[in-house]
Amino acid sequence: MAMISRVTVRKPAWQTVVMLTLLFWLSASLIVDTVVMPVLYTSGMMAESGFAIAGHSLFWVFNRVELVCAALVLTGILNLRYTLGNGTRPTHQAVFLASLLLVVALAFTYGLAPQMSGLGLQLNLFNPVSEPPALMNSLHAGYWLLETLKLLAGIVLLKECWNSLNLNLLGIGD
């Protein structure tokens, strides 16, 4: 009555995980940047006194999701770097880009978002602020610079994962 069971450990499809994470992350960033924020701006919500709190709440959640995505992408790239054959594994450039994505997510979460939220708070109810502080414009410029860097790095990394996945499906480089 001895039963032999065979357990096969199948390594996860890290390329697919990395690609789906990048697609989710980049598309969510584009939706926030091209739909959510312009709608809030045109509806006049940015002129309201409570916008800084609402914006902080929105970006607090979104930045944490970005951190999880960046960590997952970097983990996947590092896993692929050390488990795949020479012909299909990610290059040093891919590891650098994945690390850069994590640094950008950290900068958004712990650098820009708290600074922007702090500048947007209205602390004196008797003296309403009609214009945002001058520092806010430079923080917005930094945000857009990092956002552009994130999108470019993500697209290059996505392309490299796609090419590597196609090579694996063809059986080249194992």
Results as ranks from 00 to 15, higher is better:
A2M: 11
A2N: 10
V7C: 04
R10S: 07
K11F: 09
P12V: 06
A13F: 11
T16G: 11
V17P: 00
L20S: 12
T21R: 05
T21F: 01
L22W: 01
W25L: 04
S27G: 08
S29W: 06
S29P: 03
L30D: 04
L30A: 15
L30I: 09
I31V: 13
V32M: 14
D33H: 07
D33G: 15
M37S: 10
P38Y: 02
V39Y: 12
L40N: 10
T42L: 05
S43H: 09
M45K: 14
M46H: 05
S49I: 11
F51L: 02
A54T: 07
G55S: 12
H56Q: 13
V61M: 09
R64P: 00
V68N: 03
V68H: 06
C69M: 06
T75L: 13
G76C: 09
I77A: 03
N79F: 12
L80D: 01
R81V: 02
Y82M: 13
L84W: 06
G85A: 04
G85R: 03
R89P: 00
P90E: 03
P90G: 05
T91K: 07
T91A: 09
T91W: 05
H92K: 11
V95M: 06
S99Q: 02
L100N: 09
L100E: 06
L101R: 01
V103G: 08
L106K: 06
F108P: 00
Y110F: 15
Y110K: 07
L112D: 03
S117C: 05
G118D: 15
G118E: 09
L119E: 06
L119M: 15
L121R: 15
N124V: 13
N124Q: 14
L125R: 15
L125Q: 15
N127C: 09
P128V: 04
S130N: 12
E131H: 14
P133A: 10
P133D: 03
A134L: 13
L135V: 11
L135E: 15
M136N: 06
N137T: 14
G142V: 03
W144R: 14
W144N: 15
L146F: 04
T148Y: 05
L149F: 08
L152I: 15
L152F: 09
G154Y: 00
V156R: 12
V156D: 06
V156I: 12
L157I: 02
L157Y: 00
L157S: 01
K159Q: 10
K159S: 13
E160D: 14
W162S: 11
N168E: 15
G171H: 01
G171M: 02
I172A: 10
